[in-house]
Design a protein around this nucleic acid. Sequence first.
DNA 1: GATCATTAAAATCTCGAGAAAATATATTGA
DNA 2: TCAATATATTTTCTCGAGATTTTAATGATC
Lengths: 262, 262
Amino acid sequence: MRISQPFGSRATMSETALPQATPTQVALTHGADFHEEPKTLVEGAYQRLRRDIIEGVHAPGEKLRVEHLKERYDVGAGTLREALLLLVTDALVVAQGQRGFRVAPISIADFEDITRTRVLLETEALRQSIACGGEDWEAGVVAAFHRLSRAEQRLADHDVGTTQEWEIRNRAFHEALIAASGSRWIRHFQHILYQQSERYRRISLFRQPIARDIHAEHQALFEATMARDATRATSILTEHILRTLDAVKRMPADFFTNRSMR
Amino acid sequence: MRISQPFGSRATMSETALPQATPTQVALTHGADFHEEPKTLVEGAYQRLRRDIIEGVHAPGEKLRVEHLKERYDVGAGTLREALLLLVTDALVVAQGQRGFRVAPISIADFEDITRTRVLLETEALRQSIACGGEDWEAGVVAAFHRLSRAEQRLADHDVGTTQEWEIRNRAFHEALIAASGSRWIRHFQHILYQQSERYRRISLFRQPIARDIHAEHQALFEATMARDATRATSILTEHILRTLDAVKRMPADFFTNRSMR
DNA sequence: GATCATTAAAATCTCGAGAAAATATATTGA
DNA sequence: TCAATATATTTTCTCGAGATTTTAATGATC
């Protein structure tokens, strides 16, 4: 992609043009992303571990003992340690020197923080995308919205095994919206925060099915974006993201208990 | 610290109160921070490597060969790999599967991105701090400003070996300003971005001495903050950060050439 | 019964060596 | 001279075992 264009107009930012990105630009998110072919055992273990943490296989706060996990993931101790270290980058695992690793704990305050920071970054990125996005970006948004719509239709019809698919396409849609933002750093941080919120969403939706018309929200967001109405689009996006926060807030309090295990 | 308070008032954010942080809250930035005693060999190598990268000992884009570096840092290959992996978290090192590690490249576009994203996050955090900060926060700001002032005085008098000290206190001042922000995530991202910009600043200041009255800028920022004038404080902070961007922009173009080395 | 020191067990951290892959060099043919 | 292939070298990746530290268990003392 390697897009680099001027930022969207905000009162606080000086209006100087950004130069083109250098050819040596490198992806900020490290190699082993979702659904990318793992090139090494470390990346493979990293991907599987990440999925398991996000899906709640390893409970929040749980201790991750290398000697036990090397069986499950079928790699050596050193390799598993490296995978764990990679997960520290995503803040899904916390490492304490000489005391090993554990799954990052969850709390309602943390999710609130994640959500609001995500709003801050994602609306800014959307503003930039709407201001600078070209035809390629538009096409990407249209395609992602189409795929998401199909998944949501299928979800409404027969809801078996399609949530995984929906999750992937929902993420793709949100990333397509901000793909033209020009700020690799905002996209990078957004990526991390989205991943974090996905963890909360997965474990919460598991117990309490969604009761809102998400498709309508996406539709409105899509239309405002294509109409290049930055004010309306960011407003809808904000409400959209905050609504998930409200849903999670209504979860029983014991949902946020972390596994201590000494 | 573990402060968790409502966000500063922004039109786009709903005005709901944040609950208190849970006692299980964990630091987002991983253990081995600046000037913290390393508890393991990995952390020690990580700290030294990070310092060397920020100071430009290892040039941007340079390949980091484990077999060579293990001599310099006096640790085993596996240990050094782990340290390198930790640096990926800070985006100071990039890892490509089966092709080793290299120092993250630099470019004028990247620094522009870093700076503007930093403005976005740091002004928001400052707004929150001014809105929610208590006496502890005020005291911290006063103390940090005092220490910074002394360092800047010393820098103006006899400028030998005090830049290191100034760098540390400048960072401490900026972090003290946003310490009461309540958003661990914003502080976390700010931390990463500050580190990134420090790398640019170090290599640029090395060639071209500063020609601006930084102390006056800090003074104004300090006074506006203590007066709880969020609008003025964020405005000064924005100008303050952007001014460094302008300085770096005036560097010769060849300054941003990365070491390819195949 | 509770607190503290001592001992035993478990886990983490660290290293060096071998396997796999990538890069550099040499060779061959057009 | 250039391109393509084959070989040699370097580098990365992976594993298991030993050293160090943390954690749990046991026993002694108040």
